[in-house]
């Protein structure tokens, strides 16, 4: 008999840092899944994205087994990382508000393309720039399509 899907869980966990603490522990444990098994697998698969927040979608089956898919980091996470690089260490602990360049926007847009509802890099870039502005982060310079 084919196993049936009994539920989904949507988590965001830092790469390489899954542990049985909440939310992972209670969310998986209450469904009778082996938490430690999930943590070992997640950490091994995200070694190269250590510390970066990654969305993970877990599918739970009726035999208490599970599968999971790791998505690209949310655009907002990539924007914050980029803004920190841009700011450097000259202004530590000032408000998070900062700036990123159009080159950085392009890199983020390309990273996010597999998960975004956009066919062209240009439209993905506009979405990323919009997210950045909502976060209080300005995009400096001229967009490539206006050059």
């Amino acid at each position: 008999m084919a196993k049936e899907v009994t539920g989904y869980l949507k988590l965001q966990v830092k790469g390489g840092q899954a542990n049985p603490s909440p939310p992972i522990g209670p969310a998986l444990g209450s469904k009778g899944l082996n938490i430690m098994d999930f943590c070992k697998q997640f950490n091994a698969r995200t070694q190269d994205k250590q510390g970066q927040v990654l969305p993970v979608l877990i599918t739970i089956y009726n035999d208490k087994s599970f599968d999971f898919v790791i998505k690209t980091p949310p655009a907002a996470v990539l924007i914050l990382d980029a803004a920190k690089k841009q700011k450097g260490s000259s202004e530590p602990n000032r408000n998070k508000v900062g700036s990123i360049t159009w080159d950085q926007v392009k890199t983020i847009a390309e990273t996010k393309m597999p998960d975004l509802n956009a066919f062209k890099v240009e439209s993905a870039m506009k979405m990323v720039a919009g997210t950045a502005r909502s976060m209080g982060i300005t995009v400096t310079g001229t967009p490539p399509w206006e050059k």
């Binding site: 869980l9 965001q12 966990v13 830092k14 899954a18 939310p23 927040v53 907002a76 997210t131 976060m135």
Partner: peptide, 30 residues
């Protein structure tokens, strides 16, 4: 539409992991 941004910012402020709940999310710190 603000969910991912808030997760990103709260992760930066020390929260380690997040789970989606109706109308928002929960975050946890050690």
């Amino acid at each position: 539409e603000l969910s991912d941004m808030l997760v990103a910012e709260l992760a930066d402020a020390g929260f380690d992991a997040f789970i989606e709940i109706p109308d928002g999310f929960e975050g946890y710190a050690d």
